[in-house]
Design a binder for these strands. Structure first.
Lengths: 189, 189
DNA sequence: GTCTATATCGCGATAGAC
DNA sequence: GTCTATCGCGATATAGAC
């Protein structure tokens, strides 16, 4: 049993349930079944725990957004991708709930996050180029339009879950599907 | 000079700059130029200050969303409304940055917020009915489609600013206009 | 690697004088 | 209505034994 992982598991659960500000290192240690002192053996402070959780999220993204290069992606691929992304964002829901605050508190995290996000968005935009090339999107659509659509989709991807939470709706498969549908509508299919 | 207002002004500035968790009642008192004890004469605790700031936001919304009843609204009205909403949300940007967390911490605030938001969204949806009636939107569009469009626009209204911040872009008139344009595109004009 | 014990700090909140 | 003084608490982080 890896103590470091146990700490991160507990931290994730508690952050998701109560928020990073409310959860103390003592809470995390107790939930993980270790002493507060031991926690500080594995992590220098709470910020480092948060950064480690973000790295987990980045890894999950890597898996999701690494597309099969051998064939042209389809709209089904896009749907699957968005669904997988929703599920991952739900697993790490504390992150986007508090994102602006977390990034301001930690320059190191901010830099890393922007870097990862930028790469992700670029891959996402390329998807749309593929769609145009494959004729899924009308090829007459101008470049700026494609950018608009990609950005619109990205906005939905990132904020549909917070939107549901703010609306006091259950984040369940039905509402997630609605997010997917809204995105497909944005694309115009 | 109204001390209560001075406290709220200081709190708003500090919350926007640093986040509600980082800002203590002592900070607010110092910024407002009063003693910590005096702050507690006017407000029972920090949560009450936050609720008061949300009430200010609600009032601002009231002004924005109270439409002239005598004439049919136009797309220009919609644009103006969205711009005004962006500006207000920027003035109270701490609110949507931390919204999910703030609502979970305070049931009273949560109930009030959902009530105000629900009313706002209903008024917003009615706008779209007007548009259909006035022929700005194609009348053939189904009811569920209109709901989709309204929800899409609402999502943009609420999260375009956080989206900009997460993107590390300046929240300036140019980027705000882009939000408006994205919304008009969602409507299909 | 993990524990217990503890130092240090600062926040939220109250009491009581003016 | 405003101040100063202060209590009580709990959080972060470290020291040192095992």
């Amino acid at each position: 049993m890896d103590t470091k992982s146990a700490i991160l598991d507990s931290a994730l659960d508690l952050f998701n349930a109560q928020g990073t500000a409310e959860v103390t290192t003592n809470h995390i240690a107790r939930d993980a079944g270790i002493s507060p002192g031991n926690l500080y053996y594995h992590f220098r402070n709470k910020a480092e725990i948060i950064r480690a959780l973000f790295e987990r999220l980045f890894n999950a993204w890597d898996v999701i957004f690494t597309l099969d290069e051998v064939r042209q992606p389809t709209l089904d691929d896009l749907e699957r991708l968005v669904r997988a992304n929703f599920e991952t964002l739900w697993e790490y829901r504390f992150a986007y709930r508090e994102l602006v605050a977390l990034l301001r508190q930690d320059d190191q995290l901010k830099g890393r996050f922007l870097q990862v996000r930028e790469r992700g968005f670029q891959g996402f935009s390329e998807l749309f180029q593929h769609f145009m090339a494959a004729g899924v999107l009308p090829p007459t659509t101008g470049t700026s339009d494609v950018t608009d659509i990609a950005e619109m989709c990205w906005l939905i991807s990132e904020f549909w879950l917070p939107y549901l939470e703010v609306s006091d709706r259950e984040v369940d498969p039905v509402w997630l599907e609605r997010g997917v549908r809204l995105m497909l509508r944005a694309i115009g299919v």
